[in-house]
Amino acid sequence: MRWTSALAIYILFWTFSVFLVLPFGVRTSDEAGIERVKGQAESAPHDFAPGKVALRVTIVATILFALFYANYVFEWITPDMVDMTKY
């Protein structure tokens, strides 16, 4: 696999991981015990830490990509194994 392909696949894993990680660790103003601003949605997060989210996303994406790459190298699951046209 070329490094450019690996980078593109890693970016895809990173983007997917954002949607996996974002809902975790979010606290609303009500949960934090702080009064909401007028017009603020009840589900709006109280405090958003983009650095913490980016670190979590990077860790998850790196683990997923490592599993993907290990499967690519060691061929644990191949396209022939999941070919649904045979059945």
Score class of each variant (00 low, 15 high):
residue 83 D to T: 06
residue 60 V to F: 07
residue 73 V to F: 12
residue 79 P to L: 02
residue 59 I to W: 09
residue 48 F to Q: 08
residue 84 M to S: 11
residue 79 P to D: 02
residue 5 S to L: 12
residue 66 A to G: 01
residue 52 K to D: 08
residue 18 V to H: 10
residue 56 R to I: 01
residue 71 N to H: 08
residue 15 T to G: 11
residue 31 E to I: 03
residue 87 Y to A: 08
residue 6 A to F: 04
residue 64 L to M: 10
residue 84 M to L: 14
residue 5 S to Y: 14
residue 16 F to P: 01
residue 61 A to C: 00
residue 26 V to N: 09
residue 63 I to V: 09
residue 85 T to F: 10
residue 9 I to K: 12
residue 80 D to A: 00
residue 64 L to H: 00
residue 67 L to K: 08
residue 2 R to Y: 10
residue 32 A to S: 14
residue 21 V to D: 00
residue 81 M to D: 15
residue 75 E to A: 05
residue 57 V to N: 00
residue 9 I to P: 00
residue 35 E to W: 12
residue 74 F to V: 09
residue 11 I to N: 05
residue 23 P to M: 13
residue 48 F to W: 13
residue 69 Y to A: 02
residue 11 I to F: 15
residue 11 I to E: 11
residue 54 A to Y: 08
residue 51 G to L: 06
residue 9 I to W: 05
residue 63 I to Q: 02
residue 9 I to F: 04
residue 10 Y to N: 01
residue 3 W to T: 04
residue 46 H to M: 04
residue 73 V to T: 03
residue 54 A to D: 02
residue 13 F to T: 11
residue 13 F to R: 06
residue 84 M to I: 15
residue 64 L to Y: 04
residue 19 F to V: 14
residue 33 G to D: 02
residue 22 L to G: 03
residue 15 T to N: 09
residue 46 H to E: 03
residue 35 E to I: 07
residue 18 V to N: 04
residue 51 G to N: 06
residue 63 I to L: 09
residue 34 I to W: 02
residue 46 H to P: 08
residue 37 V to I: 14
residue 71 N to L: 09
residue 66 A to S: 06
residue 20 L to C: 12
residue 85 T to N: 09
residue 47 D to W: 12
residue 30 D to M: 13
residue 35 E to P: 00
residue 58 T to F: 13
residue 33 G to H: 11
residue 74 F to H: 13
residue 17 S to Y: 04
residue 36 R to D: 06
residue 52 K to T: 09
residue 40 Q to S: 10
residue 42 E to Q: 09
residue 47 D to Q: 07
residue 2 R to W: 10
residue 57 V to G: 00
residue 46 H to Y: 14
residue 16 F to H: 04
residue 15 T to V: 13
residue 86 K to D: 01
residue 22 L to K: 07
residue 30 D to N: 15
residue 41 A to R: 14
residue 38 K to W: 01
residue 76 W to Y: 11
residue 36 R to I: 04
residue 76 W to P: 02
residue 77 I to N: 10
residue 2 R to P: 15
residue 70 A to H: 07
residue 7 L to G: 02
residue 55 L to V: 12
residue 25 G to I: 01
residue 70 A to S: 12
residue 77 I to R: 13
residue 35 E to F: 06
residue 33 G to L: 06
residue 69 Y to I: 02
residue 79 P to M: 08
residue 79 P to T: 03
residue 76 W to C: 02
residue 76 W to I: 12
residue 86 K to P: 00
residue 25 G to R: 13
residue 43 S to N: 15
residue 32 A to Q: 14
residue 83 D to Y: 14
residue 27 R to D: 04
residue 2 R to H: 05
residue 31 E to Q: 15
residue 1 M to C: 07
residue 21 V to T: 04
residue 29 S to F: 15
residue 72 Y to E: 13
residue 1 M to F: 06
residue 72 Y to G: 03
residue 69 Y to V: 02
residue 11 I to A: 11
residue 26 V to M: 15
residue 86 K to H: 05
residue 3 W to Q: 08
residue 73 V to W: 10
residue 47 D to T: 12
residue 23 P to C: 11
residue 41 A to M: 08
residue 35 E to V: 09
residue 1 M to A: 07
residue 65 F to T: 10
residue 62 T to R: 04
residue 4 T to N: 11
residue 53 V to E: 05
residue 75 E to F: 01
residue 47 D to R: 07
residue 65 F to A: 03
residue 58 T to D: 00
residue 58 T to K: 09
residue 43 S to E: 15
residue 76 W to K: 01
residue 2 R to S: 11
residue 84 M to D: 02
residue 71 N to W: 08
residue 49 A to N: 13
